Structures are given as C-alpha cells and as structure tokens.
Amino acid sequence: MLTPFLRAKFDVVAFDLDGTLVDSPLNLAAIRQELGWQDGCDLLQSLAMLPDDASRQHAAEVIYRHEIQAAENSTLFPGVLDCLLQLQQSGIATAILTRNMRAATELMIDKLGIPISLVLTREDCAAKPDPEGLQRIAAHYQAAMHRLLYVGDFHFDLSTAANAGAQSCLLLNASNQQYAVNADWVMQDYAQLSRALR
C-alpha cells in the first residue's frame, strides 16, 4: 500500500499506458490467432524471430492494425487526469514508458488529453522488461533511480522497475493480483494514489 510520504520518496512517477493509464481493448489473443502464433507468446519477441522480411512485414501490419483500432476505442481510467494534475502541481515529474508503437501511443495521448510530454515507445528504446526506458527517463530528469516510481499493471512493468533499480507500483485489476507480491507498492485505483500525494 502507498504511504502518505509519496512526495518525499519520489521525484519522478512514470506510467505504463495500456491497462494502467488507459483502458485499451487490444485483443492480444486475436492477434496471435490471426497470425497463427502460439497462445500466450510475446508478440514483439515472436515478430523479431520471424525468418524473412515478408513475414515480418505481414505480422507488423496485422499488429499495427489491431493497435490503431484499440487506440481509437481507448478510454482513460477514472481519476487519471486528477492524479496527473496533482503530481504536476506537487512538482513530481511524469513520463510514459510503453511497449506500444508510437502511432497508437500518440493517438491515445491526443485523443484523451493525457498531459505527459515525455513519452517513450518501443521505437524509442529497448522494449520492457529491458531497463533502458526507465534509465533514459531518470537521466532526462536528472533523478536518482531509487527516486523513480514506475506504475504498471503487468509483470513486465514490475520486472522493468526491478531491472532498472527503480521502485514499482502495481495498479490492481481483476486478473493481475498474483503479481502483487513482486511490487514495491500496490494501489487499487487513482484515488488511492491521489490520497497518498495529499
């Protein structure tokens, strides 16, 4: 659970996008089925392992189409904008680190009015759980890594924070509670994070 001392503990709060800031109906199972890939496989790893340019191009086009459709139908989770405003008013820097492609990410940010300017996608740095993205965010804000909190909803997010030496916060949902044991902090919703800021 987050403590009342969040302002004293962190200089930067970075967020995952899908499933964290944004409810995006990206159907990973449908992508795997359309491409004939194994259930549960990592899409980016599977894409990178394809043997030739033509198959990689086809798979990339399928993934692109699904990501754009999901972005067009995305919505913000309740309390996100209030929480981000409170962070910024408190002098805590914000950023987004996502495995999404830039086109879908920019579509969601513009469509939903997310007030975060520092955004890293899979085109900008190594994909999570590689720590490069969080390292670049900390360097941008000249922040110590242990004073950076990464908020996400999936085990990749927690692993990324651990690999970088940052702290992690799991945003709970109906299907991710098994990851809570690996998070430094756990929150039910953005109202809880905002209360911690106050």
Rank of each mutant, 00 (worst) to 15 (best):
A161T: 13
S175M: 09
R136S: 07
L85R: 14
L197A: 11
A143H: 13
V13S: 01
N176R: 10
L170F: 09
N173G: 09
R195V: 05
L17F: 15
F15E: 07
A183Q: 12
Q177E: 13
G19W: 10
S90Q: 13
Y190D: 03
E106G: 02
Q177G: 05
D11F: 09
Y150G: 10
R122K: 10
R122Y: 01
D18P: 01
G40K: 02
I137E: 03
G152A: 07
A59G: 02
T121F: 03
L43K: 04
R198C: 05
A166H: 00
V181N: 13
A138K: 04
A93P: 08
G113D: 11
Y141L: 04
A164T: 05
A162E: 11
Q135K: 14
R195I: 13
L148A: 11
A8T: 15
D52P: 04
M49H: 15
T3P: 07
C83S: 14
N176H: 00
L170M: 15
R7K: 04
A174E: 03
A180R: 04
V151A: 15
A162V: 06
G165Q: 11
T3N: 07
S46L: 02
D52R: 02
Q33S: 10
Q57P: 02
T20A: 00
D39W: 03
R99H: 10
H66P: 15
L21S: 03
D130I: 00
D11I: 00
A103T: 12
M108L: 12
L170P: 07
F77C: 05
A29L: 09
K128Q: 05
R198F: 09
L120D: 06
A54E: 08
L81F: 15
G79F: 14
A8I: 10
A14Q: 03
L2C: 03
Q45T: 05
A48N: 07
P51A: 13
Y141K: 11
L76H: 01
V186F: 05
L17T: 14
I96R: 07
E132M: 01
L171C: 09
Q89C: 14
S46K: 00
A59Q: 14
R56K: 11
A54T: 05
D130Y: 06
L120G: 06
L134Y: 06
L28G: 08
Y141V: 14
R136A: 01
D110E: 01
H66K: 15
D53S: 10
G19K: 09
L112R: 05
R65V: 01
P129A: 07
E67I: 08
L97M: 13
T121P: 05
L148H: 07
S194E: 14
M108K: 07
D52Q: 12
D42P: 02
L149C: 04
S159C: 10
D23G: 00
V12H: 15
I31W: 01
T75Y: 12
D23K: 14
V12N: 11
Y179A: 04
A174I: 04
H140Y: 01
Q88T: 07
T160K: 02
L112D: 05
D130L: 00
P51Q: 12
Y150A: 08
L172Q: 10
L118P: 02
Q142C: 02
D153M: 13
L85E: 15
C125S: 00
A93E: 15
A166S: 12
D124P: 02
Y179M: 11
Y190F: 04
N163A: 07
T160D: 02
T160M: 12
P51V: 11
Q57M: 05
V119I: 12
N27T: 10
